[in-house]
């Protein structure tokens, strides 16, 4: 988290000088102390996050691929002028235990075009899909299996 703050400071400054780096170290330390004190971060959770960072990167790459596929599918639907979509409103239970993973799943579902999460209560997702073919991979697709793996392998 400290390095994230520092990188943010440097990028937002837009220059690399000794002065900026020194101030950046100081302010990143202050911000890190603040987030430890009030937002539940600590060195221990950070170490765990660092170990699992590569998993997050893998998830991100997979998500990019999914977004690309879904974009192509929706593009085909829009360009096929005779096609009339049959929108569906489906419910499903994810089976994920942690709130964080559920939120990540809901955001990924919304980020892929063609499916939008409308409501998320407890473990129940209410998802709007543009067409029947897009419902298929919702509750047993790549994203949810990867998230379950992440949850199990911690």
């Amino acid at each position: 988290m400290f390095f994230v703050y520092f990188a943010l400071w440097v990028v937002l400054n837009g220059k690399w000088t000794t002065e900026i780096a020194a101030f950046g170290l100081a302010f990143a330390a202050i911000a890190y102390f603040f987030s430890c004190r009030f937002m539940g971060f600590s060195l221990k959770t950070d170490a765990r996050l660092m170990i699992r960072a590569w998993q997050a990167v893998r998830y991100g790459v997979m998500l990019l691929k999914e977004i690309l596929n879904a974009n192509l599918a929706v593009m085909r639907m829009v360009l096929d002028l005779d096609f009339e979509p049959k929108p569906q409103l489906v419910k499903f239970n994810s089976g994920l235990k942690k709130e964080r993973h559920r939120v990540v799943l809901a955001n990924s579902i919304t980020l892929t075009p063609g499916t939008i999460t409308c409501l998320l209560e407890g473990d129940e997702f209410l998802v709007h899909a543009l067409d029947e073919s897009l419902v298929e991979g919702l509750d047993d697709g790549v994203m949810i299996t990867r998230l379950k793996e992440m949850e199990a392998g911690k």
Binding site: L68, N71, V74, P113, T115, I116, L130
Partner: peptide, 14 residues
């Protein structure tokens, strides 16, 4: 409106 939202999400992401 919700169908339109899917089309707009396409422009928003990719």
């Amino acid at each position: 409106a919700v169908n339109r939202m899917h089309a707009a999400a396409m422009g928003d992401t990719l």
